[in-house]
Design a protein around this nucleic acid. Structure first.
Length: 501
RNA sequence: GGUCCUGUGGCCGAGUGGCUAGGCAGAGCUCUGCAAAAGCUUCCACAGCGGUUCGAAUCCGCUCGGGACCUCCA
C-alpha cells in the first residue's frame, strides 16, 4: 500500500516515489507579508503541514521549504501613496522592512495558533537577491531573457518554441496554449518594453520613489514576481526535487513561470509532483481582496467581523479544513463552522477518555468478534484513505464511526472486555497518531493548570455533597454559575463529575 | 471570449457503476432529581432531460445554474 498523490502536472493520481529515498524535498509557496493572512491562506499551510507530518509518519526525512515573499511592491493597506514619496525624516517614511516584520510576526503567530509545524527552512526573498541575480544572468546568457530599459524579461515565446520540441511547452502545468494568448495581445507590444505580453519580468527597474531597491548588473531595481521561488527552491532542494505545493490560483502564471525559469537554468523540470489545494469560498466565491470578502485570521479567532456570528478557535478551523479533501472547494459558513466545533469537541472528549484508560480489552472468550473486526478495519483504513491522495475527510468519518464504540464502552453499554487488548492498543495508538501527530488537532491542552483544576475539583466535591443531600438548589447553582463562566459540568454514569472549559 | 472545474438531503461535506459515507441541525426513545453529555432509532439527497447498462450520484450527450484561471492572489 503506497502513497498516491494527485499530480497537477500529469492530471492524475500517481504513486509517490521520492528521488532519493528516504529524503523528500518539498517546496511550498508562502505568503507575501504586505498584509495580514486571511482564512484562505490557512488552507495551503494546514494542508501542506499535514502532508509534511504524514510523510514523516511514513518514515521519510523531509526538508520542507516555505518562503516568505518580502520583496516587491510594498504598500500597507490604507497607507499608500503619501508614504512612498513624502517625508525626509526616516521615522516618518514608510520603511518596508517594518511592514515585513509586522506581518511576518502576525503570520508566524497565526501559524502557531493553527499548530502548524515550522518548516525546515523559511527563506526570504530579500535574503536571496544575490541568488536571484545569478539566476537571471544565467537565463540571459542562455538567450531566454533580454534587458529593456533597466528591466529584464523572460522570453516566453522563444522558450515555448524551443522547449515544445523537448515536450515541455510553456503551459505544460496549467494546460494553457501560448499561441491563443499571444494573438489577442499583440497590439500592445509597442507600448511596452516587453517583446510579447506573455513575457514576464525577472527584474524590474525601480522607479525613483520605490524604496525597496537593490544594485544589479541592470541598474537599481527589484526582482520579479516568480524568480524568488526558483532561486530558493534550487538553492535548498536542488535542481530537481520531489514536491512543489501551493494554492490552485498559483498554478498560472506563478508555477508555470517557475518551471520555465528553472528549466532554462538547470535543464530540468524542477519538481516531480505538483500539488495544489483548492480555494476556500464564501457564499460560493473565492476569498480574496478583490472580492472584498476577506476574513483575516485574527478576526476569525476573535469573532470580530460582520460575517461572523461568533469566534472560531484555530483548532475548529483546522478541523473544518481537514473535513474536506484538499482538492475540493470548501465553502465557509457559520453553520458549517459551528458544526465542526461541536464535532471536534465530541471527538476529542472521547479520545481523551480513551487515552486515560489502561485496562480495557481482554484476551479471553468475551470478545465480540464482529465488533473487534469492525474496529480493526476502521482503524486500518486510516492509512488506506490517507494514501489515496490524503483523504482526511474519510479518515475523520471513520473516527466518527469509532466514536459510538468508545463512548458505549465508557457508558458500559459495551463491555470493557468486548475488544481484544491488541485492538484497544491499536485504536489508542492510531487515534493518537492521526489526531495528534498527523492532523495536529490537540491545540488547547495547556488551558488546564493545576490551581484551576484544584478549584474546580473543590466545587465538584461541594456539588456532590449537595446532590447527595438532595440539595438541588445548591447543586444547580454551582452548575449554572460555572456554565455562565464557560465551564461545563457533566454528571457521569458512575456518579462522577467532569468538566470542560 | 479562451482554458478548466463544479452542481449531493436545512447546512458542510465523502463518494472507486451494484453495498449505511461522516459531521452539524431536526424528531423520538434510554439514562438522569432536572439538565448537559452519551447511546439507540429516525426524517431529509444525488440540478433537469435524454442515452449507455441487468444496474448510474458515479460513464456519455444536451439544457440550466455556480465557480476558478487568463492581472497581484493560498
Amino acid at each position: 500500500m503506497s502513497l498516491k498523490l494527485y499530480n497537477s502536472l500529469t492530471r492524475q493520481k500517481e504513486v509517490f516515489t521520492p528521488i532519493n529515498p528516504p529524503y523528500v524535498g518539498m517546496y511550498v509557496c508562502g505568503p507575501t507579508v504586505s498584509g495580514e493572512s486571511h482564512l484562505g491562506h490557512a488552507r495551503p499551510f494546514i494542508t501542506f503541514d499535514v502532508i509534511f507530518r504524514y510523510l514523516q509518519y511514513l518514515g521519510y526525512k523531509v526538508r520542507y521549504v516555505r518562503n516568505i515573499t518580502d520583496a516587491g511592491h510594498f504598500e500597507e493597506e490604507g497607507r499608500e501613496a503619501e508614504d512612498k514619496i513624502s517625508s525626509k525624516a526616516v521615522l516618518e517614511k514608510l520603511e518596508p522592512m517594518e511592514l515585513v516584520q509586522k506581518y511576518t510576526n502576525l503570520y508566524h503567530w497565526a501559524m502557531s495558533q493553527f499548530n502548524n509545524l515550522p518548516p525546515s527552512i523559511e527563506p526570504t526573498a530579500t535574503g536571496h537577491i544575490v541568488e536571484q541575480i545569478e539566476m537571471i544572468k544565467k537565463i540571459i546568457a542562455d538567450g531566454y531573457a533580454y534587458e529593456a530599459n533597466g528591466s529584464v524579461y523572460f522570453d516566453v515565446e522563444k522558450y515555448n518554441t524551443d522547449f515544445s520540441a523537448k515536450g515541455q511547452p510553456y503551459g505544460i502545468l496549467s494546460g494553457r496554449v501560448l499561441d491563443e494568448q499571444i494573438e489577442s495581445t499583440r497590439e500592445l507590444d509597442n507600448q511596452d518594453e516587453k517583446r510579447n505580453k506573455s513575457d514576464f519580468a525577472l527584474w524590474k527597474k525601480a522607479p525613483a520613489e520605490h524604496i525597496m531597491r537593490w544594485q544589479s548588473p541592470w541598474g537599481e531595481g527589484f526582482p520579479g514576481w516568480h524568480i524568488e521561488c526558483s532561486a530558493m527552491s534550487t538553492k535548498y532542494l536542488g535542481e530537481e526535487f520531489d514536491i512543489h505545493g501551493g494554492g490552485m490560483d498559483l498554478q498560472f502564471p506563478h508555477h508555470e513561470c517557475e518551471i520555465a525559469q528553472s528549466t532554462v537554468c538547470n535543464h530540468k523540470m524542477p519538481a516531480r509532483y505538483w500539488l495544489h489545494n483548492n480555494m476556500i469560498t464564501i457564499n460560493g466565491r473565492k476569498m480574496g481582496k478583490s472580492y472584498n470578502n476577506v476574513i483575516k485570521l485574527s478576526e476569525l479567532f476573535s469573532g470580530n467581523h460582520p460575517i461572523l456570528e461568533q469566534a472560531y478557535a484555530p483548532a475548529t478551523v483546522r478541523f473544518f479544513i481537514l473535513q474536506s479533501q484538499y482538492r475540493s472547494t470548501l465553502d465557509f459558513g457559520n453553520e458549517a463552522l459551528q458544526g465542526s466545533e461541536k464535532a471536534l469537541k465530541r471527538l476529542m472528549e472521547a479520545f481523551d477518555w480513551l487515552q486515560q484508560q489502561n485496562d480495557l480489552g481482554s484476551t479471553g472468550t468475551n470478545i465480540d468478534t464482529a465488533l473487534d473486526e469492525k474496529v480493526n478495519k476502521l482503524v486500518a483504513d486510516f492509512d488506506t484513505f490517507m494514501n489515496d491522495d490524503l483523504n482526511t475527510a474519510k479518515v475523520i468519518a471513520n473516527m466518527f464511526e469509532l466514536l459510538p464504540v468508545i463512548n458505549s464502552i465508557k457508558d458500559k453499554h459495551i463491555a470493557a472486555t468486548a475488544l481484544h487488548s491488541n485492538t484497544v492498543a491499536l485504536l489508542k495508538k492510531q487515534l493518537h497518531t492521526f489526531l495528534i501527530d498527523i492532523f495536529g488537532l490537540q491545540i488547547n491542552k495547556a488551558d488546564n493548570n493545576d490551581k484551576l483544576d484544584g478549584v474546580l475539583q473543590l466545587l465538584i466535591n461541594i456539588r456532590k455533597d449537595a446532590k447527595s443531600r438532595k440539595d438541588f438548589v445548591t447543586s444547580d447553582k454551582i452548575r449554572n454559575e460555572l456554565a455562565a463562566l464557560g465551564v461545563q459540568l457533566k454528571d457521569e454514569k458512575d456518579g462522577g463529575m467532569s468538566y470542560t472549559i
